[in-house]
Lab assay of single mutants.
Amino acid sequence: DETGKFLVLALYDYQEKSPREVTMKKGDILTLLNSTNKDWWKVEVNGRQGFVPAAYVKFL
């Protein structure tokens, strides 16, 4: 149950560059965990948590 969690859509592919980031593919649906930083949002994708560039995702 994803109640209270926001979902975001990956607009572009992103390859993680550090262990704190996660890789996503364009079209992936991600669970948004934290968006307090304007540049990097914490998400969960494929069972992994990490950061992606905020400009690469949008709210569903």
Rank of each mutant, 00 (worst) to 15 (best):
N46P: 05
P19N: 10
R20A: 14
K42W: 15
I29Q: 05
P53I: 03
E2D: 14
F59A: 10
Y56H: 07
I29V: 12
N46V: 05
T31C: 10
P53Y: 02
W40M: 06
N34F: 06
S18M: 07
D1A: 14
G4C: 14
P19D: 13
T3F: 12
N37E: 11
F59Y: 12
F51K: 02
A55E: 11
V45E: 03
K5E: 10
S18R: 08
M24K: 00
W40S: 03
K42Y: 15
V22Y: 03
V45Y: 11
V8T: 04
T23P: 07
Y14T: 01
T3Q: 13
L60A: 08
V52M: 02
D13G: 05
N34P: 03
D28E: 10
R48N: 06
D13L: 02
G4K: 14
Q15D: 14
K5R: 14
G47L: 04
N37G: 11
S35I: 09
T23C: 05
V43R: 00
G4Y: 10
D28L: 04
T3C: 13
S18A: 09
T3W: 13
F51C: 09
L7Y: 15
L7R: 11
D39W: 15
V22G: 02
D1Y: 07
E16S: 15
T31A: 09
K26N: 04
F6Y: 13
Q49I: 15
Q49A: 12
S18V: 05
L32K: 01
E2T: 14
I29P: 02
Y14S: 01
L33N: 02
R48F: 06
A55Y: 09
G27Q: 02
L9Y: 14
T23K: 04
V45N: 11
S18Y: 07
M24E: 00
A10W: 03
T3M: 12
E16V: 06
F51G: 01
E21N: 05
V45H: 15
L9W: 07
P19F: 09
R20K: 13
R48W: 03
S35G: 10
L7E: 07
K5Q: 15
F6N: 11
R20L: 15
E21C: 06
F59Q: 10
T36H: 12
L30N: 01
T23G: 09
D28S: 06
E21G: 11
D1T: 13
W41P: 02
G27V: 01
V52D: 00
G50E: 01
G4I: 14
F59L: 15
A55V: 10
V8W: 07
L32E: 00
K26A: 13
E44D: 09
R48L: 07
M24I: 15
G4D: 09
V45I: 15
V8Y: 09
L9I: 15
W40L: 03
F51Q: 03
L60T: 08
S18K: 07
V52R: 00
E21D: 06
T3R: 10
Q15R: 10
K26T: 07
Q49F: 08
N46E: 11
V57P: 00
G27D: 06
V43A: 01
K38N: 11
G27Y: 05
D39V: 14
K17A: 12
I29M: 07
L9Q: 11
D28F: 04
F51T: 03
K58T: 15
R20N: 14
K38V: 11
F51N: 03
E2K: 13
K58L: 12
S18G: 13
E2V: 14
M24H: 01
F6C: 15
L30K: 00
K5V: 11
V52L: 02
K58D: 08
V52S: 01
S18N: 12
Q49D: 06
T3G: 12
A55L: 10
D39E: 12
M24W: 02
K17H: 08
L30S: 02
D13F: 04
S35K: 12
D13N: 08
L11N: 04
L60P: 05
R20E: 13
K58H: 10
N34D: 15
I29T: 07
W40P: 00
P19G: 09
D1N: 14
P19E: 12
V57M: 06
V22I: 15
P19I: 09
S35V: 09
D13I: 02
T36N: 13
P53V: 02
V43P: 00
D13W: 03
T23S: 15
F6E: 09
A10I: 02
F51V: 07
V22W: 04
S18D: 13
A54S: 13
L7V: 09
Y56R: 05
Q49S: 12
K25G: 04
P19K: 09
W40G: 01
A10Y: 02
Q15N: 13
T36W: 10
V22Q: 03
V57A: 02
E16M: 13
F51S: 03
W41A: 04
S18T: 12
E2R: 08
K17Y: 04
T31P: 13
V45F: 14
G50D: 00
F51E: 04
G4A: 13
K26G: 05
G47Y: 05
N34E: 15
N37Y: 08
T3E: 13
G47H: 06
L9G: 03
A55F: 09
Q15T: 15
